[in-house]
Simulated scan of single mutants.
Amino acid sequence: MAAAAAQSGEAQPNRPISNILIVIAMQTEAQPVVNKFELIEDPHSPFPQGVPWVRYHGKYKDLNINLIWPGKDPSSGVDSVGTISSALVTYAAIQALQPDLIINAGTAGGFKARGASVGDIFIASDCAFHDRRIPIPVFDLYGVGSRKAFETPNLVKELDLKVAKLSTGDSLDMTEQDESSITANDATVKDMEGAAVAYVADLLKVPAIFVKAVTDIIDGDKPTAEEFLQNLAAVTAALDLAVEKVINFINGKSISEL
């Protein structure tokens, strides 16, 4: 696990964190963070020619911040959301930028029955998939792909953030099978990127934390897409503030102090 690797010394847990990688899926979510930290777009991207991935970077206090946004899909022109883009861009960014810590920040759906409300900010304790159904022994566990996020007890306590499990799938809506899998994952929040970022972070042994802001109530009475769009701007502002607080807490601390 990435958390275990970091705590065992591979990520130099006692050295102050200096290089942070923020992975955000949508431009609407990314732009306030870019503005807040006065990040600038890299005109000479470290990524392969032709990919739409965008790197913003800058210095904030003692931290080098890289924010990676997967960009607009070349064919459709919409944000490159979902697990494939987020996994690819996370892998490429780790290779190119060698971060000490990854922050996957973004919006998510939440379950009212499990204590989520619109505007809530959650730190994910665990990430898993709910739409990779492989009903063969052991392959079923691979499909779920459950992974622990890096534990940040001091950060959670200091910022008074909610902690919950996160379930990831490539659809905004939810089928009955998805709902059963999300319930089995014991997840309070649902997104389209987190578990993919967790998979890559685990492979490459980089500690990763997940900051998710609830835009819509999945078990509420409003259509998901309608509620998501209605609340996106306000919740993105709340996410921006949460990311700022997380970054300020991280500044000057080592991995082991989080």
Results as ranks from 00 to 15, higher is better:
2 A>D: 08
3 A>C: 14
6 A>C: 07
7 Q>Y: 11
8 S>R: 14
8 S>I: 00
8 S>N: 09
10 E>Q: 15
10 E>R: 15
20 I>F: 00
21 L>G: 02
21 L>T: 00
23 V>Y: 04
26 M>E: 04
26 M>T: 03
28 T>K: 15
29 E>Q: 13
32 P>V: 02
32 P>S: 05
33 V>R: 15
34 V>R: 03
40 I>W: 14
42 D>A: 13
43 P>Y: 12
47 F>T: 03
53 W>L: 11
55 R>C: 12
56 Y>T: 00
57 H>S: 09
66 N>Y: 06
68 I>M: 14
68 I>C: 04
71 G>I: 02
71 G>R: 06
72 K>D: 03
73 D>A: 08
77 G>L: 06
78 V>S: 13
78 V>G: 12
79 D>Y: 13
83 T>Q: 12
84 I>C: 07
87 A>D: 03
88 L>P: 02
88 L>A: 15
91 Y>Q: 10
92 A>F: 13
98 Q>C: 05
99 P>Q: 02
101 L>M: 04
105 A>K: 12
115 G>Y: 06
115 G>R: 06
116 A>C: 12
118 V>H: 10
124 A>M: 09
126 D>Q: 10
126 D>M: 11
127 C>I: 10
128 A>D: 00
134 I>W: 12
138 V>N: 08
141 L>M: 07
142 Y>T: 05
148 K>Y: 09
150 F>Y: 12
150 F>A: 11
154 N>R: 13
155 L>E: 04
155 L>D: 00
156 V>F: 09
157 K>L: 03
164 A>F: 03
165 K>V: 00
166 L>M: 11
169 G>E: 00
171 S>F: 07
172 L>F: 10
173 D>M: 06
173 D>R: 13
175 T>N: 02
177 Q>R: 08
178 D>V: 06
181 S>W: 06
185 N>I: 01
189 V>F: 08
189 V>A: 05
190 K>A: 09
192 M>A: 04
193 E>M: 06
195 A>D: 01
196 A>V: 08
197 V>D: 01
201 A>I: 02
203 L>K: 06
203 L>W: 02
207 P>I: 04
207 P>S: 04
208 A>D: 00
210 F>S: 02
211 V>S: 00
211 V>M: 07
212 K>Y: 06
215 T>Q: 03
217 I>F: 07
217 I>A: 04
218 I>W: 00
218 I>C: 12
219 D>Y: 14
219 D>Q: 11
220 G>H: 01
221 D>F: 14
222 K>P: 00
223 P>C: 05
223 P>Q: 08
224 T>P: 09
225 A>Y: 10
226 E>A: 03
228 F>D: 04
228 F>E: 06
233 A>C: 09
235 V>M: 05
237 A>N: 14
238 A>M: 11
240 D>C: 15
240 D>E: 15
241 L>S: 08
241 L>Q: 13
242 A>W: 12
247 I>S: 08
247 I>D: 03
248 N>K: 15
249 F>S: 03
251 N>Y: 11
254 S>G: 01
258 L>I: 02
258 L>W: 07
